[in-house]
């Protein structure tokens, strides 16, 4: 564990809590993409299957459980409890366009052709693009509430911090995983446009509104 990874995990945890609290407190999931949330539930389910096969640490197990449970809780709140507030007219990104290519790529490029390993790789590829329906939703409506922006900033920062963690681990531990690194780079690059708007607008107290 190094500081970048810890900050990355905490940033991820913060993002999840912010999103759940926002939905719970406002009794609404307006502006949130249910498609992205379903994709995240798929991501964490397929990645953390090793919960039953490999023990790494209490921290690792605890965080994995939190991420899986929170992903399903979010999907439940959006599609069942606060279904009436779900913005499905704008949330039109096709999930299969991300799931199918990620699965094919995982079958082609992986560390080992076993079920668990391919599913782990699939989850890494899918996570890198899972935010696209959310970014698509924001671009369609042309704006995002501040709290949604904070959620996206924390979620985007998480993989960015992991990139620093991988640089650190490369030098300090001689450890690197190209699949995770390349996917992490893609994932972070997808947020760049959003990061720019967040820093130039939201942090100055303005609403995130896209130029017409």
């Amino acid at each position: 564990m190094n500081i970048f990874r810890l900050l990355g995990d905490l940033s991820h945890l913060l993002a999840i809590i912010v999103l759940l609290l926002k939905i719970w407190k406002t009794r609404s999931c307006a502006g949130i993409s249910g498609k992205s949330q379903i994709l995240f539930a798929i991501v964490y389910t397929s990645r953390y299957l090793d919960l039953v096969t490999t023990y790494i640490s209490a921290y690792n197990t605890f965080m994995k459980l939190i991420f899986v449970v929170a992903a399903y809780a979010t999907v439940y709140l959006m599609y069942i409890k606060f279904k009436a507030t779900y913005d499905h007219n704008h949330d039109t990104f096709r999930m299969e366009f991300l799931v199918i290519p990620s699965l094919i790529l995982a079958l082609l490029i992986n560390h080992e052709l076993t079920v668990l390993e391919v599913l782990w790789t699939f989850s890494i590829y899918l996570e890198s693009v899972a935010i696209l329906p959310q970014l698509f939703l924001v671009s369609k409506t042309g704006e995002a509430e501040s709290i949604t922006s904070h959620y996206l900033f924390a979620l985007g920062s998480y993989r960015g911090l992991y990139l620093l963690n991988w640089v650190y681990r490369y030098y300090a531990e001689d450890h690197y995983d190209l699949i995770a690194i390349v996917a992490g780079l893609v994932q972070t690059v997808l947020y760049c446009d959003f990061f720019y708007l967040y820093i130039t607008k939201v942090l100055k107290g303005k609403k995130l509104q896209l130029p017409a």
């Binding site: 090793d50 490999t54 790494i56 991420f67 560390h111 080992e112 390993e117 992991y162 963690n165």
Partner: peptide, 10 residues
């Protein structure tokens, strides 16, 4: 194995 080390992250 190598995989234990590879997948020690979240």
């Amino acid at each position: 194995t190598i995989f234990d080390k590879l997948h020690d992250e979240l």
